[in-house]
């Protein structure tokens, strides 16, 4: 199962390192990363493999989203299925 992690906020040093560090804690393998600056905002999308997750998906998602608040970034952790379902026939 894959998850889509989006990180949006003001650009600062070390965002990628901090978020991927958190993913590593939960044994989430990052398969793909894309990042850009949209209208002055830093915007990163990571695709992670959560098959070997060390906790429940819910706990991982909640923890990462809370972690986002501590570094002033808005983080969403969502199942890939929702995007495939909405944007693919």
């Amino acid at each position: 199962m894959k998850t889509v992690i989006t990180v949006v906020g003001k650009d600062t040093v070390g965002i990628l390192a901090k978020v991927s560090g958190k993913c590593a804690e939960y044994n989430v393998n990052i398969i793909d990363v894309t990042q850009s600056i949209l209208q002055g905002m830093f915007c990163m999308i990571m695709i992670g493999d959560v098959d070997k997750l060390t906790s429940s998906f819910g706990d991982f998602a909640l923890d990462l989203e809370k972690f986002g608040d501590t570094i002033d970034m808005k983080i969403h952790v969502m199942h890939e299925a929702i995007f495939n379902s909405m944007h693919r026939i």
Partner: peptide, 12 residues
């Protein structure tokens, strides 16, 4: 693979 624009659209 779903593209960035679609992902951001869903989140918005």
């Amino acid at each position: 693979m779903v593209n960035t624009k679609d992902i951001l659209e869903t989140i918005s």
